[in-house]
Amino acid sequence: MDRAREARMGWALVAPALLWLTAFFVLPFAIMVGLSLSRFVGREVVPALSLDNYIRFFTEPSLFRGLVVSLEITAMVTVVSVVLAYPLAWIIAFQVPRNWQRLVLVLTILPFWTSYVVRSYAWLLVLGQGGVVNGALMGLGVIDAPLSLSATRFATVTGFVHFFVMLLTLTIYANLVQLSPNYARAAADLGAGRFATFRHVILPLTLPGVMTGAFLTFVLCMGDYITPQILGGGNELTLPQLIMMQLGRRGDFPMASAMAIILMAVVTLAYLACARFLRLERV
């Protein structure tokens, strides 16, 4: 096959993917960028090349706070989810007999099969003043009066963590089971205790799985609208909630587009940081 024909074949093979990306990513993204530079005057979108929406976002405290709240919640969720998911994945990978691991994994991800909205409302009831948590704490005599758990940031973080622990468990488990037991044996031969083996051998080798899961958690959590809307009680607004307000109530597509691009920029920065940390230039 000559080179020209090879090149044509290459383009032909890549064309469907290029077409798909152009139609469903590049074009919509270009439209969004164009809209974000437009102005919203009265109730009309006026074409323009203006950075007003971006300036307004960063100078208006109630809007900028949405980004801060989103970052705070996402950081909490990511850290708590990793801390909970790692031991769970470890137990499944190394403590559960191999024959049972598949079943245990299925049980771990069972909540994935229920509706996200229903699950959030269920948490609202669980964390309510007459809910399971308050009931148990009062029954045990830990508290005298019910705690305000629902309609708080705690409730939002809890709802998120419940979901993302499942996701992280899967990614970390996939990493752990690929580790050859010889690494641990070699470390032991060199005199390392169990903690030192974990600290200096296992953990670094499983970091790619942890970081991948943490990045997925970050992306999904930053962009989620439903959980904070249902569980947060409207006591603070995340960036996606603010975007929805611009769309649903104001019809301010330019501002919503600017906010969406800022959200995308934050996620991109997180990805670059993640890739740099893992030295995954080729990812």
């Binding site: 009831l125 309510g128 007459g130 009680g233 409207g234 006591n235």
Partner: peptide
């Protein structure tokens, strides 16, 4: 106020005694 809620969340809060 304890919360600012849309219809279903407000209904739920009232119904469950929040």
């Amino acid at each position: 106020a304890r919360q600012v809620s849309e219809v279903v969340a407000a209904q739920t809060a009232l119904a469950v005694g929040e």
